[in-house]
Each structure stands twice: as structure tokens, then as C-alpha cells.
Amino acid sequence: MTGPDRAPTAIAPALSWSARIAVFTRMFAVQGSWNYETMLGPGIGFCAEPALRELPGGPDGPAYKDALARETRYFNAHPYLAAVAIGALVRAELEGRPAAQIERFRTAMCGPLGSLGDRLVWAGWLPFCSLVALLAFGLRASPLVIVILFLGLYNAGHVALRAWGVNTGWRGGLRVAASLGSPLLQRGPQYLARAVLFLAGLALPLAIARVIGRRGLEIPSHDWRIALPLAALFAIVLAALLVRLPARVEGWRAALVVLAVLILISIAR
């Protein structure tokens, strides 16, 4: 099925608010059908679908069917920054851009949206928010405060990034790649990395102290004075070992082994 290509326009085509809201809401489930074959592809189609209904001929027309078929094909990106691609693709479809141009755009956007999102969110914003929560934990904040602080902070960034992404994609259309070169996006991961390192240095000793529990578990102070330095030394040695070991030796496996040994010793004594 091939619909007639319409002339691209300089001004963004009209899109109803109900469609905009539906596209934005569906983006929270963009990875709902994630799989190793088409990856994010069906999710992109699922998110774009409410907007595609406004193509000439409506949801029964050939333009809708062609566009939906295109948008459900293989695609991969960071789930939050996929919003940029969704905004751009919806606009391109509504403008009636040639199918080949849209396919090229989809192929070209996978890499940049994946790597930028991984650096910005998974290696930057998420550890930053986790460390803020651990800092609050170390400073003896209540469980409710810790949970609200973490979820509020993280999701302020998360929702803002999705909203920025879909708006930027919609405004830029197939030329949106230029927006990804903005200084904030390019330098953001560097700034976040420094903040994460500072926060790690600050939060981890406080969190260790609370877990060992000088006050909370009423451990005698002489025990605590021995336990804390020894724990710090063990942590530094193990961390150095984990950094130097090949990447496939994952820390959570090492922690699992350490705890298994501790449990066995404890019940066998």
C-alpha cells in the first residue's frame, strides 16, 4: 500500500490537543512490547497512532495504514529520548514526507538517541537521584521523606525530558538532529558525572554509618569504632578490586557471594 506523498510544509501541521495528550501519555508505555527482534518498533507505532488518525482518510485510509506500518518496524533508542523521534516522525507523517526519507531518519536516529540517553539518564540522572536519596538516608531522614524525595526529583527530570523530547521532535521534524547538539545535552552528562562523584563521596560514608547503625541498632560505641574503619577499608579494597576486574565480573554477583558465605558461617557456627 502506498499513499500519495503530500508536499512538506515549513509550518508544523495541525494536530489536535487530544491527540497530543494521547501520544504523550502512551510514551510511558513505549517499551511495553520490547523484544529482541523489533525492539522499540511496535512501541513507537503504539505511541504515534493517535496522531496518525488525523492523516487524510482517517484511521481507515491508506495514508494511516502505510504510516502505522512504517512506524511499527524495527527501532531502538533510549526510552525517554525516543520521544524526540516520536515527535519528529509524527510531524513527518502528517506532512506527508516520502517513505524513504522517513525510513532513513529512523535508521539514523537509533544510535544518537540511544547513546545520549544512556549517558544522560542511566549513567547520570538516575545515579544522581539515587545518591541524593542515600544522602537523605544517611542523614536519618524518615522513609517517607526518602521515597518522596527520590521519586519527586527523579520524575521531575524524567517527565520534563519526555515533554521536551516530543516538543523538540515536533518542532524540528526530520531536522531535529541539530537540537541534539545543544550544549546542555552535550555537556550535561559531564556535569552530572562530576556531581555524581561528589555525591558518592559524600553519601556513601553516611549511608555505611547508618547501615552499621551507631544509634539505630544500639551497637556499643567501642564496637562501632572498630566496625566502621574496618568496613571502610573492606569497601575500598573491594571497590578497587571490582574496578580493576574485567567488566563481566559484576559487583552484585560478588555481593551475593559475600553474603552467602556470611549466612553459611553464621548458621554453621
Partner: peptide, 29 residues
């Protein structure tokens, strides 16, 4: 059947977890 004291067991736990976190953050950043 648990016999190991709180200070020792929690020290090992905290140290192992902090080591994983510290190592991971250093690798990433």
C-alpha cells in the same frame, strides 16, 4: 540459627554494598 553479631554482619553488608556502588560510579563517571 543466626550467630554473627550485628556490628560485624552489618559492617560486612555495608562495606560490600558501598564497594559495589563506589566501583560502579567510578567506572561510569
Amino acid at each position: 540459627h543466626w550467630t554473627v553479631g550485628r556490628a560485624a554482619s552489618h559492617s560486612i553488608l555495608a562495606a560490600a554494598a558501598a564497594a559495589v556502588a563506589g566501583g560502579a560510579i567510578w567506572r561510569q563517571s
